[in-house]
Design a binder for these strands. Sequence first.
RNA 1: GGCGGGUUGCCCGAGCGGCCAAUGGGAGGGGACUGUAAAUCCCCCGGCUCUGCCUUCGAAGGUUCAAAUCCUUCACCCGCCA
Length: 424
Amino acid sequence: MTTQLLADLEWRGLIAQTTDREGLLKDLNSKPLKFYIGFDPTAPSLHVGNLVVILVMRRFQLAGHLPIALVGGATGLVGDPSGRNEERTLNDETVVVQWVENIRKQLSKFLDFESNKNPAVMANNLDWTKPVSALEFLRDIGKHFSVNQMLAKDSVSSRLESGGISYTEFSYQVLQAFDYLELYRRDNCRLQLGGSDQWGNIVAGLDLIRKVEGGSAHAFTIPLMAKSDGSKFGKTAGGSVWLDADMTSPYAFYQFWINTDDADVEKYLKVFSFKDRSEIERLIETVAVNPGAREAQRELARELTSLVHGSDQCEKVEAASKALFGQGELKDLDEKTLASALAQLPKVTIDKSEAFPTWVDLLAATGVVESKSAARRIVKENGAYLNNEKISGEDFAPTKENLIHGKFLVLRKGKRDLASVEVI
RNA sequence: GGCGGGUUGCCCGAGCGGCCAAUGGGAGGGGACUGUAAAUCCCCCGGCUCUGCCUUCGAAGGUUCAAAUCCUUCACCCGCCA
């Protein structure tokens, strides 16, 4: 069972580095193993980048192991220097508390906390870090760390070369090591997973466990997601793709996945999909045979949107997507379908009694463009559409005749940026 | 603490008294091609009540008909010396 887990992860390209592979395999095979991953609250929500690691966690749970989802209420206050070339700005304590709560809620969607066989549990490192005094920390934990070794870590040494590091962030690895020690002692947690940039921090924990408890545990890192064109995974023009529906709408989330490059879709399927291997291989085949159909992208988008936002939302969003991009006439959609499709888009409402503003004003009001100048530019450059029909002239204004079902207008900028107007 | 160098539009980076909303590259946007892809090509890329006006070149003052460009003070960054 678990032998398969590692082989499967390997096939999916989800293993960057592990300690003692044989030993890990043996431990995983002998009994359900407690393992943990930490998420620091550095934003109000998790984003698709975090999803890589979260789903690996899910895979471990599905294989029968016991996940501990750790939220970094303490470490989030300090700031991890890994993978950063400059100091983080500290966030306010009350803000971090809120973020911890958000992240906790999001994580609970991906793991099973109810299972009576191997339920997941939550932890917050603030619980055991806060009570420790600075003196205790320095004497009981700090004493086991060699500054020489700490300086040698990538996260620190690269920062020493690029402008320096504060004592606060320098101490981060000690805090994370302390977490691992705590979970090892308390729950016999013997495996920590993390992104490959976490290797140094995880290993610091292993050292601490060995020195303090004479015990041994494992480290397992997951490659950081990279896109084939070198750009950063999980970012769009609008910024990060968040898991929070208020920050990235389910529609935008779906669009993110469906717009996956052909060159990346194989990798994404392997990393994100829970379909079995033969199905994934079939989908990869379709990319080679009939790339234009984009079946793989569609399946990927559907699976991930369902997972993150629920299958109900996913269906709505898919319907919206089809209606708005499909070859069908907008007018042919029944009012209900159209309304739910439009509900997914940026929207502006105007009063029945008012005169219609210009297309330019409407688009600017939806927030799809940043300024009226930008909206004018779109018209000038021939990228302005009303109800999927091209319009021209900067002072073009819709009329009553353009309303669909007597109340809707669909604005489009370029090929795929849509917004809606409702008259009430 | 002393001396020197720097701070320019989303990012990098030219400009060093008028021809500057400011060269160039990247990112981003529109168009063509296609598949709501990639690559390529063309165009755009501070704002507005848009043949003009307004606000930008670390901050605040000043010199000048005219300043991103000169002067003064302040803040931050980077070197060298202590």
